[in-house]
Design a binder for these strands. Structure first.
Length: 439
RNA sequence: GAUCCCUUCGUCUAGCGGUUAGGACGACGCCCUUUCACGGCGUAAACACGGGUUCGAUUCCCGUAGGGAUCGCCA
């Protein structure tokens, strides 16, 4: 049976680098194994989930090039969850609770102040039938908790090896709210089962959930998928990333003009033992992927690395990949300037330099006038620059920087840039003369 | 407060008792290009600290410090 993996964002915000790393890891493994990659919207929280965010997430994933085979929304699968709830109630694993949030909050604080873990003490299991009747008479609806086995749960983690977690140290999770709406845990397990998910790769913030979910999978009569939990990313300063995810939203990176493959190249390899390299497509990332290459310590995500990767990717990009984004930029211009770019859009600046209008920088008027007299014969090609500068050298005695620098400045207005032998023919004789004679 | 995970060049990491502690990115230098950038080549750069165990610890154990995570009617 082929592998089936899923990326399950909740549409309560924009995709950020942490999310995308999770998406990539699941995508890469699914592709490598020739399996299925599913996009699943965990939109069980009607308060916070919106269609706008769901659309934005799809847009971002498409931009990255992570094609999914199927997609689903948890908000459309209520019947499946209802059936699971009925089953769990019947087997006694789901029990009603009438605690109010205020009571629970207070209880947690009391336990904490005594130095005890703030775990739900199962008061609801102890209440009498009279109390239940009383609650119901008042019209109060219960919320429902999953009764944990309070035993060690062990699984073989793809990154961390054998992991054991004692569910006695955990609170029985609430699965269903008073109003019947569901929390993340149940739909997630039901979907994983129904969709035959074989592997779940996610951040280590989910390890405790895994123990709970394994019990749930079993209570539902299913077999848990294989898990792998990689260490989370931190910011460049070593601080947690999740809290300040806003500045690292994928759409911001896109708006900054970064290439999707720069993002993919970094996020697929950061924290792994494979070198971070500038790739122009996903294929090498797919075949080199191995979840065991992930380390167990948090890696730093440094936006500067993204810049560096982006530049190196841009230097390799073919004209066909960028032409649509660069109106007016010819193939010749692209190949002349790409090695000097950090972002694709920077080519537009060079278009302006070549075609004008631009302000030449004049260092030495008489030298430039002399040079203008020595311009090589038309038509100009790559060899014209050499012919021209040799002639100038001969007649003026200048060489090296003295010879070269004033010409670049007059012709491009810039201290640095692409090779002049490529730029000269593009600028052309008319504009060259114009710029040389600028006073 | 409790529990779990982690700590090797600036960064991402290899290492699984004896190594000149390896690679990648970055930095720096040289070469190429009659400046710059690109590219090529090269150099510098690390075992958090303190105790053990051992003939011998980067590697195993304990502790300290630091970092990350979890303890929700969020996902």
């Amino acid at each position: 049976m082929s592998v089936r993996l899923r990326f399950a964002p909740s549409p309560t915000g924009y995709l950020h680098v942490g999310n995308v790393r999770t998406a990539l890891v699941n995508f890469l493994y699914a592709r490598q194994q020739g399996g299925i990659f599913m996009l699943r919207f965990d939109d069980t929280d009607p308060e916070r989930s919106t269609e706008e965010f769901a659309d934005a997430i799809e847009e971002d994933i498409r931009w990255l090039g992570l094609k999914w085979n199927t997609s689903s929304h948890q908000s459309h699968r209520q019947e499946a969850y209802d059936a699971a709830v009925v089953h769990l109630k019947a087997s006694g694993r789901l029990y009603p609770c009438w605690d109010t949030p205020q009571e629970l909050d207070l209880r947690r604080k009391v336990l904490l102040s005594r130095g005890k873990p703030p775990v739900y003490e199962r008061g609801a299991l102890a209440i009498t039938q009279e109390q239940k009747d009383a609650f119901e008479a008042e019209g109060r609806q219960p919320h429902w908790r999953f009764r944990l086995n309070q035993q060690p749960v062990t699984w073989q983690d793809g990154v961390r090896g054998a992991v054991t977690f004692d569910t006695a140290t955990l609170s029985d999770p609430v699965l269903v709210r008073e109003d019947g709406s569901l929390l993340y845990t149940l739909p997630s397990c039901v979907d994983d089962l129904d969709h035959h998910v074989t592997h779940v790769f996610r951040g280590e913030d989910h390890v405790t959930n895994t123990a709970v979910q394994i019990e749930l999978f079993e209570a539902l009569g299913g077999t848990p998928p294989q898990f792998a939990h990689f260490a989370l990313l931190t910011g460049a300063g070593g601080e947690g990333l999740s809290k300040r995810a806003g500045s690292l939203a994928i759409r911001d990176l896109r708006e900054q003009g970064l290439e999707p493959m720069a993002v993919n190249s970094l996020l697929a390899r950061i924290g792994t033992s494979d070198p971070i390299e500038p790739f122009t497509d996903l294929a090498p990332l797919v075949y080199s992927f191995d979840v065991e290459k992930f380390g167990r310590s948090a890696a730093r995500f440094d936006p500067h690395e993204l810049e560096v990767l982006n530049a190196r990717i841009v230097h390799q990009l073919h004209y066909s990949n960028v032409a649509a984004r660069l109106p007016g930029v010819s193939e010749e211009l692209w190949y002349a300037v790409r090695a000097n770019l950090t972002r694709v859009a920077d080519a537009l600046d060079w278009l302006k330099v070549v075609e004008g209008p631009m302000q030449p920088v004049i260092e030495d008027t008489s030298f430039l006038n002399q040079a203008a007299e020595l311009l090589p014969p038309l038509p100009w090609g790559e060899e014209s620059w050499g012919e021209w500068t040799s002639a100038i050298k001969q007649s003026t005695g200048r060489k090296g920087r003295e010879l070269f620098h004033p010409l670049r400045l007059a012709l491009t207005g810039r201290e640095q840039g692409p090779e002049m032998k490529l730029l000269l023919p593009l600028i052309g004789p008319k504009r060259v003369r114009q710029r040389l004679f600028t006073q």
